[in-house]
């Protein structure tokens, strides 16, 4: 295994094994197997830079490195994508 990334949405984190030469579309297809949402309805954003990741480019092209955190957002019913929503455990503690 060359590397992995952490794909986060809400309170869930998916650890995805991948290779720097894989495209973002490849990653979305891997996610499709896990979340039942087609690649077309997924948007991935590199959390470090806030940059939206481009399907046709590779992980290496877009400086997505081992252990990187990537936000997943899904297409809503009105065809727009939802905002990035990653819940951090500290938020939870401060509420409770």
């Amino acid at each position: 295994m060359a590397m992995y990334i952490r794909v986060k949405r809400s309170k869930t984190t998916y650890f995805i094994q991948c290779d720097p030469t894989e495209s973002i579309l490849d990653i979305k297809q891997k996610l499709h197997a896990l979340i039942d949402q087609p690649a077309n309805d997924q948007r991935l954003i590199l959390v470090g830079t806030g940059e939206e990741l481009d399907d046709s480019k590779t992980l290496a092209d877009q400086k997505v490195e081992n252990d990187a955190v990537v936000a997943l957002t899904l297409r809503k019913d009105d065809n727009e994508f939802e905002d990035v929503d990653i819940v951090k455990p500290d938020d939870f503690l401060s509420i409770s």
Partner: peptide
Amino acid sequence: MRKEDTVKLISAEGFEFVIDKNAA
């Protein structure tokens, strides 16, 4: 990666981590 090859680990606060069985 197939869904059957992963496990979901759930923390005390109910956060979920989906990882490969081989890693787990």
